[in-house]
Design a protein around this nucleic acid. Sequence first.
DNA 1: GGGGAGAGATGCCGC
DNA 2: GCGGCATTTCTCCCC
Lengths: 243, 243
Amino acid sequence: MNAYPERLQRALERNETVLMCCNCSIRYSGRAESLLGNGDRIIIIKADKTLIVHQPEGNNPVNYMKPGTSFLMVPKEKGWLLKAANLPLKEFIDIEIFEMHYFYSRKLEDSQSITVAGTEEDMTNMIMQQPELIEQGFKPVSQEEQTKYGYIDVLGYDKDRTLVVVECKRFHADFNAVQQLRRYVEKIKESKGINIVRGILAAPKITPNAEQMLKDWGFEFKTVKPPRYLEEFDKRQRKLEGF
Amino acid sequence: MNAYPERLQRALERNETVLMCCNCSIRYSGRAESLLGNGDRIIIIKADKTLIVHQPEGNNPVNYMKPGTSFLMVPKEKGWLLKAANLPLKEFIDIEIFEMHYFYSRKLEDSQSITVAGTEEDMTNMIMQQPELIEQGFKPVSQEEQTKYGYIDVLGYDKDRTLVVVECKRFHADFNAVQQLRRYVEKIKESKGINIVRGILAAPKITPNAEQMLKDWGFEFKTVKPPRYLEEFDKRQRKLEGF
DNA sequence: GGGGAGAGATGCCGC
DNA sequence: GCGGCATTTCTCCCC
């Protein structure tokens, strides 16, 4: 029952998802290169031939390969060598497995995809529907017009019919956000052949340095928070803080 | 043997790592909000109380919680409810488990940390040691001097004793890289009180638009690739392309 | 496939 | 803690 190479091959052929817990060392070469000495890790090979390796601590995988990777497992004197190769991406991983604590595979059924709320897109939609969040008299133009000028979040006119470019950030606005806004304002001035275009950065917060840069260039900041839809869920959760 | 709430609690107390394979639905609220309908997923709870949930396809976890999260599992009419809460971060996840395909826990030992080569830092070190990669006569200044002016990758003088700011990118240089370089050049001009400072962007490639912006602002591009150390490993790997 | 930009980005280092 | 920035970033959209 421990013919792991055969079990792995069969599982992969059947598009099963494979879970391994083992002591191993790992070598990677591709976009960069990495070495990782002996230790206990969790290895996942998914139905789409994604490889993910986790150490017992930390958010992120320590090594990984993108979907479409090929695998080959061969016995060694002590343990096994698991080779992973993604030829189109020129990425390679060798996992030397010294001890297999546990091996599991199963066909997983999951047709659902996640829906996320509170993103930057939700922010821009909110502003399109409630333009007064930017300022009184602000009139966004239609979304079709926006796309003509690239990736501008919201384009509109103020009460004096001056063109306004709005850049949204769902969290902190930083240097990048300010320079992005500047690029868009320049782009609009050029394409429309006009000299006066206002730039507004809309976000919950802005860093002091970014705010200085914003003012230096004559742009403005407006405090706007991304919308939330699950307030009730939040309240229920906070009541259960005790566990 | 299927008293999962007790087994989970015991495992967490012992700082074991927990692997679950189950059919579940997931609700998240925190920095944003998300919903995910029924499906088979892999759930990992690590020794440091990180939560990671994977669908059977795709590189990235579909849901996750940072280290230091608290967990509570309670039985329901059909299945269990696994609640995860990180109070300092105001993040909450509810996982409704309808069927537990598999449950495993084990204390994992791993004292190793990964070493990565071919990063931007390796590039800057390479340029410090081989300044001619930028141009003949280029003389980098000491790293202590660099830090005084912030996050400039490499600062030096050309053969005419003109100050040069070098910004490195390990892959494609884009708009952001050019604007970063511009920020640094401006910063240096200001702090040193000089008018003429050259800016060089060093990377394997640059996008056409970024190159135009670079030229418009009077900066230069120099093709430089990040160093590689595992060439032999690469060659061996490419010979094994057949599997 | 490349370019551009968001992400529940994450993680690191510095102040 | 925030700020600034790299990341084997990943992912999506659009050209």
